[in-house]
């Protein structure tokens, strides 16, 4: 039947259509940039691609005059370390508590309301408190990410654990498994791929909290640099940094997806994703 919802683009048309918005954005940017530069050759708001290129070269290849470090890499390393620690700790907390709350009704009754309440606190509202308690160093940045991400992962994994088919648990019990054995041999293996899913979903929030923490107090990091050079409108540095962060976020997501497919093939087959 000829309806819009039934018309499907071919593979190549699909790719072209997907690229189109990017091309439109680029053209609009170029036009805007050229118009502003024609007006004022020193304009900083929409720098030309050549000055963006210069800035990338300066930040990513040349050592800084002041510290001798190559800024893009020190910033990236600092940010990824904070992000990795924050998300890693959150995943660990999420797994431990998610499994415990999802399988042991007594623990669930005792702790679930607390976790639910904690997950409702907007983490950015806690920032001033975190600063006073944990100081302005690395710790408070990591804690902010953990606060923002861990409750979500806990709740998600708890839900997933409760959704495990009861037959599975009954079967393990008829085979004589204890609670501890069921957790280790049934629940945890079942939940690991779901943990990766939850981590992937929470990465966006983790980046948000990372940039927010770095904007407020830091000596390096991707968010620090963006908020620092914003002070003198250095869009030639800000724009490449934003693109770089987007790329990093995309790559982390891709890596997690590939890792999940490699390690838990059964899970993806179960979900009908094929190989």
């Amino acid at each position: 039947m000829k309806r819009l919802i039934n018309l499907r683009p071919s593979r190549s048309t699909g790719i072209l259509l997907g690229l189109l918005p990017f091309v439109v954005l680029l053209v609009v940017y170029l036009a805007g940039s050229q118009a502003r530069l024609a007006d004022n050759p020193n304009d900083k708001l929409l720098p030309a691609f050549s000055s963006l290129g210069d800035a990338v070269e300066r930040m990513a290849l040349e050592p800084s005059k002041r510290s001798g470090d190559i800024l893009l890499w020190t910033d990236t390393a600092a940010s990824l370390q904070r992000l990795g620690l924050g998300v890693g700790i959150s995943a660990l907390i999420g797994l431990v508590f998610g499994v415990a709350l999802g399988t042991v009704p007594y623990l669930r009754a005792g702790l679930s309301p607390l976790v639910s309440s904690l997950s409702l606190i907007p983490p950015l509202a806690l920032l001033p408190i975190l600063f006073i308690v944990f100081g302005l160093g690395e710790l408070s940045k990591v804690v902010l990410i953990v606060f923002g991400v861990a409750p979500f992962i806990i709740r998600d994994l708890q839900q997933r654990a409760q959704e495990l088919p009861a037959e599975l648990l009954v079967k393990a019990q008829t085979l004589g498994a204890s609670t501890w054995q069921i957790i280790l041999r049934v629940v945890v293996p079942q939940l690991l791929p779901r943990l990766l899913d939850a981590v992937r979903l929470s990465l966006g929030a983790a980046w948000l909290f990372l940039i927010a923490a770095e904007a407020i107090a830091a000596t390096d990091g991707l968010g620090y640099r963006i908020f620092l050079v914003r002070r003198y409108l250095a869009m030639d540095v800000v724009l490449p940094y934003v693109v770089w962060i987007t790329l990093l976020a995309y790559l982390t997501d891709l890596l997690l997806r590939i890792a999940s497919r490699r390690a838990f093939r059964w899970y993806h087959q179960l979900n009908g994703e094929g190989n």
């Binding site: 107090a217 000596t219 620092l228």
Partner: peptide
């Protein structure tokens, strides 16, 4: 010395923390 960039909105809270 080491300069630590700190948002003005959080300066007072920052001073209250022991490591500042």
């Amino acid at each position: 010395l080491t300069v630590v960039n700190t948002s003005d909105a959080d300066m007072v809270a920052a001073y209250a923390s022991p490591d500042v």
